[in-house]
Amino acid sequence: MITKRFLLTLILFAGISSLSIAQSATHKTDVNKDIDVVRVYEQVVKEGYGTPFIYKKLATAYYYKSEYDKAVTWFQKLFSEEKNTDPELATQYNQALKAVAATSSKNSLKDIF
């Protein structure tokens, strides 16, 4: 009787172990999570292959990172290459300009005092 229990416990343990190993082996890693797209796009622009699509991606990426001075730079390059038809981009550009202006006025007040 003890050997049957032992054998049943051993089979159950082996089955559970093989299932857990099989589930952990199917985990796929996402390579795109490790790539900083902003750096890649900046390198592409530095090599001379800048397009309005890339400028738009860089501008919105910096806007959402709250790096408004860089966002304004890329928005200006984008709008110099093509006419803006997206109202959301215009809103982001205006807000970035306001943020840069507010930051520069704060810095000038710090210099005074």
Rank of each mutant, 00 (worst) to 15 (best):
T9N: 13
G15A: 06
G15S: 12
S24R: 10
K83A: 08
E81L: 05
V100P: 00
I112V: 13
I21W: 06
D86F: 01
F6A: 15
T85F: 09
Y63F: 12
Q23C: 04
F113Q: 15
Q95P: 12
N107P: 13
E47A: 14
S104Y: 00
S105T: 08
A22F: 05
S108Y: 13
R5Y: 01
L89D: 02
K98P: 11
K46G: 08
Y62R: 05
D36R: 07
K70R: 11
L109D: 15
E81F: 01
E47W: 08
Q23Y: 01
F13Q: 09
I112S: 12
V72N: 01
S66C: 05
D86A: 01
A22N: 08
K57R: 08
H27A: 15
I2M: 08
Y49G: 02
Q23P: 00
V38G: 10
L89W: 00
Y41Q: 11
K110T: 15
N94F: 07
Q92T: 02
S104D: 10
I21K: 00
W74S: 05
Y68R: 00
R39Y: 13
A22R: 06
L19D: 08
E81M: 05
T73P: 10
F13P: 11
I21Y: 06
V72C: 03
S17E: 05
A99V: 04
E81P: 00
G15C: 09
V38K: 05
E47H: 09
Q95S: 14
K65N: 12
S17M: 11
T29N: 15
L89T: 03
D86T: 03
S80W: 03
F6M: 14
A102L: 06
S105K: 11
V45G: 04
V72I: 03
V31C: 07
N84M: 09
L8C: 06
A14L: 11
S80C: 02
F79I: 00
I2Y: 04
N94D: 09
Q92L: 06
S105M: 11
D34K: 02
L12V: 14
I35S: 02
K106I: 13
K65W: 07
Q43I: 01
A14G: 12
Y64L: 13
D30Y: 02
S24D: 15
P87R: 03
Y68S: 02
S20D: 09
W74T: 03
E42L: 04
A102Q: 04
A59F: 01
N94S: 12
Y41W: 14
K110F: 14
A102K: 04
S20E: 10
V100C: 01
N84R: 04
L89V: 03
T29K: 11
S66I: 00
E67I: 12
T9V: 14
K56T: 10
V72F: 00
I11G: 15
L8K: 07
R5Q: 01
V38E: 04
V38M: 09
K65S: 14
D69A: 14
W74A: 07
